[in-house]
Amino acid sequence: MRKLIKILDVNIDQANMEQSVERIKELIFDHEKSSLVVTPNSEMIAMAAEDIELARILNSADLATADGIGVVIASKILGQPLPERVAGFDLISSLFKEFAEEDINFYFLGSKPGIVDRAVENLKRDYPNLNIAGYHHGYIDYDDQQKIIEEINSKNIDLLLVGMGVPLQEKFLDSNLKKLKVGAAVTVGGSFDVLAGEVNRAPLWMQKAALEWFYRLLQEPSRFGRMLSLPKFIFLVLKSKYLE
């Protein structure tokens, strides 16, 4: 039985990392449908407050983890504290470890041409027995989509990781998940860039101190505009609690 909280009308699972991995294991073996896993952060939830379609997609997911300290802070403000942040990159890293020696097939879809290739190379080095059945970059048109769907459906994929950025990845899966024969599809944002070594994660101490956003800003100053979504998000959460 899922335990959910609502943050700006977006459902978030009250689950820690271990529980999230267990939930995905359950979804993989649910052969009745292809399941959806999303990883909303504060920017996504603020976006969903203005994008009804995105909000609907996020709320249709079979698992929604709290990707970002802002979401955890919001849960505390609302008096329903989440157990911990379950960042998308950390979640898929846990899945790689969990399934490194298992007969579980992965497919990677997303990022720029060449980036996902390097991500796969690095993963094969770190997890030689991980079953990566296929991959493709995310710069695709309608005809490409149909070919990729056919390829995925021919490979018995258990976990499809989609990293196209928000909201493209969510809307892509909303349009195509019923056509896909996969155990579960997970939205992973820019995780392929990190796996490929294009972007570095913050040192562990900064992650624990909730300063990963600042580290990303130092690496990519162009993200400054996007960072403004965090104070906007907190304002909306406070408004939802005290003014509505």
Rank of each mutant, 00 (worst) to 15 (best):
K3H: 10
L4W: 12
L4P: 00
I5Y: 00
I5L: 03
I5S: 01
V10F: 06
N11T: 06
I12Q: 02
D13T: 09
A15Q: 07
A15S: 09
E18H: 09
Q19W: 05
S20D: 12
S20H: 09
E22R: 08
I24L: 08
I24W: 07
K25R: 07
E26I: 05
E26Y: 09
E26N: 14
I28Q: 06
E32P: 00
V37G: 10
V38I: 12
N41F: 05
N41G: 10
I52S: 10
L54V: 03
D62V: 02
D62I: 04
D62L: 02
D62P: 00
L63C: 04
A64I: 04
D67A: 02
V72F: 08
S75T: 11
L78I: 01
G79W: 02
P81D: 04
E84T: 10
V86W: 09
F89K: 07
D90S: 03
S93R: 06
S93C: 10
F96Y: 14
A100F: 11
D103P: 11
Y107F: 13
F108H: 08
F108Y: 11
G110Q: 05
S111E: 11
K112T: 14
P113Q: 10
I115A: 01
V116C: 01
V116H: 03
V116L: 03
A119Y: 06
V120D: 06
V120W: 11
E121I: 14
L123G: 02
K124T: 07
R125S: 08
D126P: 01
P128W: 15
P128E: 09
N129M: 07
N131L: 07
N131G: 01
I140T: 14
D141N: 15
Y142D: 14
Y142C: 03
D144H: 15
Q146T: 14
K147P: 00
I149L: 12
I149Q: 06
E150C: 01
I152R: 10
I152D: 06
N153A: 13
S154F: 08
N156A: 08
I157K: 04
L159F: 06
L161Y: 14
G163E: 13
M164E: 12
G165K: 03
G165R: 03
P167T: 01
P167H: 00
K171R: 12
K171D: 02
D174C: 03
N176E: 08
L177T: 11
L180C: 09
K181I: 06
V182R: 05
V182P: 01
V186P: 12
G189N: 02
S191W: 01
S191A: 15
G197H: 07
V199S: 13
N200D: 15
M206H: 04
M206L: 15
A209H: 02
W213G: 08
F214P: 07
F214N: 08
L217G: 11
L217K: 11
L217T: 13
L218I: 15
L218D: 01
L218K: 10
Q219H: 10
E220K: 13
R223V: 05
R223I: 10
L228A: 00
K232P: 02
K232G: 08
F233W: 00
F235V: 15
L236F: 09
L236C: 09
S240T: 10
